[in-house]
Design a protein around this nucleic acid. Structure first.
Lengths: 157, 157
DNA sequence: CTCATTATCTTAGTTGCTAAGATAATTTGT
DNA sequence: ACAAATTATCTTAGCAACTAAGATAATGAG
């Protein structure tokens, strides 16, 4: 069964490629974090803060799966590094809002530029239809991974 | 410029999707590690050992970027957990070869099955030609990421 | 056969995490 | 209105995994 074997090989190669591409992405983030003098967790949190607007400490904890104590440390470090600032919520003064500071655009965004440019360059050779296929694939991959994790959870110990 | 905007949106969506799919994959690994009672680093090392055959401690350190001291700890834990074994190299008795034990197939492989099945299921709906496109894309993504990291390294501090 | 080199392990100290409880603000019940 | 319960963050104590530097042991070179 030659054609069936080829297809199987293709699928195996895709799994490997997926892992390698994913791994490289993680390494890139780590390199950026190191360059900023912060750790990967802090950068991940900063990313959330920058994208999802000002966030409470609790929301950040929920988004990352860290404990409230860990988040206190994260915000302390981001504040000390000048990337974010605490701000008491005026309506509910128990809450701490974390806001991203302009240093993000100045110091952080440039470090993601090589990656962004590389991504755009890679994608430029694809037609709209092909891009749509890729997008669909990646979304399926994410959903499949999510479903697999649920199944893993229901597996006998 | 409607069509141009759409394409830009598509590319932005692809970047997001790439990160989300990658993130889900990482989470899956973490879930597997947790289920095995080991940490992600140890599982990553075990993966290397299982795939690349018996390996010296030093080779493992080089592959993962960990220090020799950290690797000693990793091997200690994997050995204690019954997943790997130390073995002195007969030719050069300074070296420690780390070998994967059968427990891997029995206990670990099953935990990756949900993911593997999900991957196969996701991919089954694609034609060979489409699979080839996806593979090419992922390999480009990996290479682009690698190149971007090199560029990052040569950026002014 | 001594000395430099190589490979791993050991030790001391750091970092970032969790769990549990402290503190402070808000909401609820009466 | 006010005591009690709840909610949100911070603090503290302890732990796990890491690095850096040096100890130990085997090998290779002159």
């Amino acid at each position: 069964m030659k054609s069936s074997k080829t297809r199987q090989d293709l699928i195996a190669a895709l799994n490997t490629a997926m892992r390698e591409a994913s791994g490289q992405g993680v390494l890139y983030s780590q390199a950026v974090a190191q360059r900023l003098g912060i750790n990967s967790t802090d950068l991940e949190c900063l990313d959330h803060i920058a994208l999802r607007g000002p966030l409470t400490a609790g929301a950040l904890a929920a988004a990352t799966g860290l404990t409230s104590g860990a988040i206190t440390g994260v915000i302390d470090r981001l504040e000390r590094a000048g990337f974010a600032a605490r701000e008491r919520d005026a309506n509910d003064r128990r809450k701490v809002l974390v806001r991203a500071l302009p240093a993000i655009e100045k110091k952080i965004a440039p470090l993601f530029e090589p990656m962004q440019k590389a991504a755009i360059a890679s994608l430029s050779s694809y037609s709209d239809k092909e891009l749509a296929l890729l997008l669909d694939f990646l979304q399926r991959a994410r959903d499949a991974s999510l479903a697999a994790m649920a199944e893993l959870g229901s597996l006998p110990a």
